[in-house]
Design a protein around this nucleic acid. Structure first.
Length: 324
RNA sequence: CGCGGGAUGGAGCAGUAGCAGCUCGCCGGGCUCAUAAUCCGGAGGUCGGGGGUGCAAAUCCCCCUCCCGCAC
């Protein structure tokens, strides 16, 4: 007959898909006073060589922890709503689920849905905050714990935690840090939110930027841009959608790159000790690790050795072979 | 049967029937001009494996083994 609040057990449904979301789900599982009563994730899709079905990383994790897993095709039908309602959850936590939660679903849970978004909102609302952060050269980013509303990452903010962006940061390295940070924010702040002591604050109306879903076209390097900007794109778009440049007849994927002093016609290829460089309006763009379609990654020097025909075909003519 | 690429000296690649080559590395020597040093010479390959067709196969046909890329 004591006050029930401190000992109340909250029922939580988690929604997430890639490995990025795992630390957050782990945080929930370890959170006192909370029970994960269901996990919402993308259904197994044909992937990999041979087109075999693969469950999402969260799906695999949930299976291993004997969690109830839901993989609806869509959340816009009454059947999906019924499944969620049956869980009798108090709150939902969303981390990189990969589907929009329609208003009808948001309304299903008494305490709504909480989302950990990988940027300092309202900067980089949308699907690719991590990549955009790096591509834009931001020196600082973070995770925003927020309440979902019907908009795209427009809901009120519960708490934000900042994180410096390293000068050599890649989408992979930054995602790793933000993934951990998301789990930490959930561990530290979800309970106070549920207890009603952490109040959502509306997002600022200024400073809004959008981070739309990336496409392969975003990865094409154009040498009218400064070398530094191109290097940022290489770091931001690896592994997806990948930064590529046209070399002769093939699309060369650039895995790592740097800049070097120098002035060459934009797009002009020059020989450098590490392999080759490309002229830009500011400095030279120097690929370091590259990948030919269908091939394993190799150094730019190795690429040059094997493909120098492509790189130099405008300056070398056919060799005159001695006859007789 | 999702689409596709590959296996050729230590590395990366050319080579669609007629002497197995290129860039780099490696070894020996010359020179000394640092920062892609350079010049001369040299070693190193059962062309993934097995069968077949041909006067002749890295190359064409069949089988096998292994490797890899793409998908958001």
């Amino acid at each position: 007959m004591e006050k029930s609040l401190p000992t109340r057990n909250f029922r939580v449904v988690f929604a997430g898909s890639p490995a990025y979301a795992i630390p957050s789900l782990e945080a929930l599982l370890a959170l006192p006073g909370c029970s994960v009563v269901g996990v919402l994730t993308q259904k197994p899709k044909p992937r990999g060589r041979g087109n075999q079905l693969h469950a999402s990383a969260i799906g695999v994790f949930a299976e291993a922890h004997n969690l109830l897993t839901l993989t609806p095709n869509t959340l816009r039908v009454p059947e999906a709503h019924a499944l969620l309602t049956a869980l009798k959850a108090d709150v939902g936590v969303v981390v990189a689920y990969g589907k929009i939660l329609p208003q009808a679903v948001l309304n299903l849970l008494p305490q709504g849905w909480v989302n950990a978004h990988a940027s300092l909102l309202p900067r980089w609302r949308g699907a690719s905050p991590i990549q955009q952060t790096i591509a834009a050269g931001d020196v600082e980013t973070g995770v925003s714990l927020m309440q979902l509303d019907a908009g795209m990452d427009t809901g009120p903010i519960l708490v934000q935690e900042r994180l410096p962006v390293a000068v050599d940061e890649t989408a992979v390295s930054l995602a790793e840090k933000l993934s951990q940070l998301s789990g930490m924010l959930i561990r530290k702040h979800l309970r106070t939110y549920l207890d009603g002591t952490l109040l959502p604050q509306p997002q600022p109306v200024t400073g809004v930027t959008l981070a739309p879903q990336l496409t392969k076209a975003d990865g094409h390097l154009h040498f009218g841009e400064a070398a530094l900007q191109l290097v940022r794109k290489v770091r931001a778009f690896n592994p997806w959608p990948g930064a590529v440049m046209q070399v002769g007849t093939l699309l060369l994927k650039i895995l790592t790159a740097t800049t070097a002093p120098g002035q060459e016609q934009p797009g002009k290829i020059v020989r450098v000790p590490t392999g080759f460089g490309v002229g830009t309006p500011q400095q030279l763009f120097i690929p370091l690790q590259v990948q030919v379609p269908g091939k394993k990654p190799m150094s730019a020097a190795e690429f040059f050795h094997g493909y120098n025909r492509l790189l130099t075909n405008d300056v070398t003519g056919p060799k005159s072979s001695p006859t007789s």
